[in-house]
């Protein structure tokens, strides 16, 4: 599995569009913060983080998902890997680990970048603000990884780039969870606590010192593990598309 990870990291580091994309994203972020800076208040650094980070599962996670998952389909690399004897389970697990690692890197750097911008503009975050900002980043990190795991089922089960990318984006923009919430409110209101948005919210609150961390973490791990297991199952059942 380490060999595969080494290969994947090599490939991603040589993907020029990744540098361009994240560079453009950082510049856009800085511009938006600068434009808003005229109306800053003491709460802006936290409230803006909450608002901006909301888009990161789609904007940052979406790129990572495409680079890690759908590039494989576009280039027919899955065929090469399976043909070279790499097990399907290894492929799924490696992709998931890399998605988690790269997302962790992005969601660890973004709060720093955010704090740095506000500091430059004279609104340096206080200690408690940093905690909230990182807790918010944790929430969206967890959502990003979970959405990738869920969309991964479609990647390996259908082996269709468009379907999997559309599903990821719908998940990342909370379209799917919004629809499910509406349905659940009518038929089973209690079940909405088990949606990813709610679970990650509870983890964020626990990280900020409110509520237990154990239950939502267990639920989260179960969520992701089930999605991973379904991906592996789907991949084993589906023959390689040529």
């Amino acid at each position: 599995m380490l060999k595969l990870m080494r290969g994947e990291l090599y490939r991603l580091l040589h993907k020029k569009s990744m540098y361009i994309y994240f560079g453009a994203l950082a510049v856009t972020y800085a511009l938006v913060v600068y434009v808003r800076s005229g109306g800053f208040s003491a709460q802006s650094v936290v409230s803006d983080a909450m608002n901006f980070f909301n888009f990161l599962p789609a904007l940052a996670g979406g790129f990572l998902f495409a680079a890690l998952y759908t590039d494989d389909l576009n280039s027919k690399n899955l065929i090469a890997l399976v043909g070279f004897g790499v097990s399907k389970t290894k492929i799924v697990v490696t992709r998931f680990i890399l998605m988690a690692l790269l997302s962790a890197l992005v969601f660890a750097l973004v709060p720093l970048f955010h704090g740095m911008l506000y500091t430059l503009l004279g609104w340096a975050p206080a200690q408690v603000a940093w905690t909230t900002i990182y807790a918010a980043s944790l929430k969206y990190f967890l959502m990003t990884v979970a959405f990738a795991a869920l969309a991964g089922i479609v990647v390996y089960g259908l082996q269709r780039t468009t379907f999997s990318m559309v599903l990821y984006i719908l998940l990342a923009f909370n379209v799917v969870s919004g629809l499910i919430t509406v349905v659940l409110k009518t038929f089973a209101p209690n079940l909405s606590n088990y949606l990813m948005a709610s679970i990650s919210d509870r983890i964020m609150l626990a990280a900020m010192g409110s509520g237990s961390l154990v239950t939502p973490i267990v639920l989260y791990v179960a969520y992701v593990a089930c999605a991973g297991a379904l991906s592996v199952l789907a991949f084993h059942k589906k023959e390689m598309e040529f």
């Binding site: 490939r11 040589h14 993907k15 020029k16 569009s17 590039d71 576009n74 280039s75 027919k76 690399n77 065929i79 090469a80 043909g83 070279f84 004897g85 040529f242």
Partner: peptide, 13 residues
């Protein structure tokens, strides 16, 4: 083993 069933490579590399 080595194999080639349609050359499958990453387009950007």
């Amino acid at each position: 083993m080595g194999f080639m069933i349609n050359p499958s490579f990453f387009s950007y590399l």
